[in-house]
Design a protein around this nucleic acid. Structure first.
Lengths: 372, 372
DNA sequence: TTGTACGCGTTATCAC
DNA sequence: GTGATAACGCGTACAA
């Protein structure tokens, strides 16, 4: 493993010119079979790998795109990592701490990433991923600048990098933003997103014939946009059906399974249980389900329960939970597809793609399931 | 947004030479403050971004590393992605299907990725991520080859790339492998991993004074290594304490919450409940917990329950679940740290780092908690 | 402190 | 078919 071999080395080894080597890699048909074979041999005798940098430089495109994801957690441990084999296991007495679990968000980003990768792969693109922003602006713009130079275009998730940097970034590189709700950047650059309002509307059909209780949405910093959207969609649906949104009781479950459990239990005790529990996320719905099961209340016969998000646990709960699945994978794919288009036609007007949610009808709302 | 501006454009705009522009970016102190300022102005008037390709080419290093992750799911939807705004929500009647949920694995990879990113960020490296392998060998080697050319080194998770490609890859680029169990590649190249046996041993201490029932490990294709390790560690721990592994009943919970629920319920009905349920993953432990709660059996007073993996749900279950957390984030960080070392000193002997698991003692095994 | 000129490894356009 | 050779955009001795 001396110096990295180059085309010159391969050319010499195979007794041809560098032009032929290059050709045999890019347009194999334009090269005689025997020479091609000689070159192949030389290549893997030497362990030659074409320099991506040189290729990109010559071709004026990197065939790479960048993806910026927000990160909420794990950002403090900035000490040097000590490389050492430790012979024992750590043992920690882990007392309850009522922290908000950021894992909740990660589930999304993870899936978006998969979507991006899937589509990038299909398009023959490499994906440069950056998360762990949330540092100083200076650091961020340094990283963003660095990465920008290595790619043909950029995908940003909402809130992954500060808004005030977006415009400047957009002026330097093709940019696509993935947002879960309307943003201030409407029409400014390409947008891919999902309408939570439509999701709520559709999902509402599940229990439209019943009195409802939306279990909803504690104001958590940084998550307001989605919450508002969801809530508004819910109210809209109510109104459309001639119900007064203000009349539907709304409880704030803080997105927490435990809190939802407590609220539901209390409702049961006070005999105030409505005919449907419409929960703003799956965790709360699962909590409600548990409370109802413990109280011996039949779901969906006595109460319908629905969640929101489509986390995997909803498929194994008892009963399985009707929920609304966000098209996270599709968001990723759409973003890449959009970016590719944008790179090809830089001057086209900004596109905006809106993806539908999927309502998964399951046993927790069986009462309104069509007889399939 | 005409043609991308280059150093030459900036130099002309600022009335200096390209060398000065370059310097003002890399060694600002070597440039007079006023010229530096002029250059800054020119740079953002033009929206100049240094070409990563050219930089890498000139510097002979890319400051990028690649990460290969395995993917188990989502690999079939290879149709073109249709960019269109759909105005309705999908509605799906989702009947139960007893598929194995690959999400289980994803949780790991996601965290490893975060670890890599975290450390890469600190080291000023870009991270090129590839998953979605599981295609034809030809496709894989094409992607691998392509990516190799763009990076200084590569991190592979076990089973992300076919074993027979690893050696060749290693001969071309610095390579670090993250494995959750011993592999055939011992000493061949750099390795970062976690010992599940030690994890099991440590964790065993939790309930060492009681009769135990390991709830364990259905043979699922592709996951055998970890399972065997875990099981062996468990048996070792038993033996160390003078117990006969063969005498400890082992039930196969298929890694499924539901199955574990059923098994536990059955044990209760048949009055065969042991004093501890040692589950091979958290999902099963949660299932057991639910069954016990429903049966009105006190945890941990009557039975101790422990899980394995440290998924977030274990922190919100009732009671919270004692479990063994795999150091996934640290694996990622260690891998990057190792790779950086390797790139700096290509000829050093292969290193092997083994990371400790963390046993999280919580209420589901409160009986044996030290009085903290 | 600043400018000149060459090299980095490929691709692509010519001739041959 | 194959071989010279000029870009590609930047870093960096070496000069000035």
């Amino acid at each position: 493993m001396d110096k990295k071999p180059t085309v010159y080395d391969v050319a010499r080894e195979a007794g041809v010119s560098i032009a032929t080597v290059s050709r045999s890699l890019r347009t194999p048909n334009a090269v005689r079979a025997t020479t091609r074979q000689a070159i192949r041999t030389a290549i893997d005798r030497l362990g030659y790998v074409p320099s991506g940098s040189a290729q990109s430089l010559a071709a004026r495109r990197t065939n790479s795109i960048a993806l910026f994801l927000p990160t909420i957690d794990e950002l403090d441990s900035l000490s040097d990592f000590e490389l050492a084999t430790v012979d024992e296991a750590n043992m920690v007495i882990d007392r309850p701490t009522h922290h908000v679990v950021a894992r909740y968000d990660s589930l999304y980003f993870d899936t978006v990433l998969r979507g991006c990768e899937l589509e990038a792969w299909r398009q023959g693109l490499s994906l440069v991923v950056s998360l762990g922003m949330g540092h100083s602006d200076a650091d961020i713009s340094h990283v963003v600048n660095d990465v920008s130079g290595k790619v043909d275009g950029i995908i940003v998730l909402a809130r992954s990098i500060p808004d005030h940097m977006l415009e400047a970034l957009h002026r330097r590189r093709p940019l696509v933003m993935i947002a879960s709700s309307p943003t201030a950047h409407e029409g400014e650059f390409d947008l891919v997103r999902v309408s939570n309002r439509k999701g709520m509307s559709a999902w509402w059909d599940i229990s439209s014939t019943r009195t409802t209780l939306p279990e909803s949405l504690h104001d958590r910093p940084g998550r307001l946009p989605r919450q508002r959207q969801t809530l508004r969609g819910f109210c809209e649906a109510l109104t459309l059906r001639g119900l007064n949104p203000a009349a539907a009781p709304i409880y704030r479950g803080q997105f927490s399974q435990r809190t939802a459990f407590d609220i539901t239990s209390t409702l049961v005790e006070q005999d105030q249980l409505p005919e449907a529990l419409i929960c703003a996320n799956d965790q709360m719905a699962l909590g409600a389900l548990t409370a109802l099961r413990r109280a011996g209340i039949a779901v969906p016969d006595r109460v319908i329960v629905t969640g929101f998000d489509g986390i995997t646990e909803t498929d194994t709960s008892n009963p399985r939970l009707t929920t609304v699945k966000q098209p996270m994978l599709e968001l990723g794919r759409a973003a890449v597809a959009t970016l590719v288009k944008r790179v090809d036609t830089p001057d086209a007007p900004a596109m905006s793609t809106e993806l539908p949610v999927t309502v998964l009808l399951r046993e927790s709302s069986e009462g309104v399931l069509p007889d399939a």
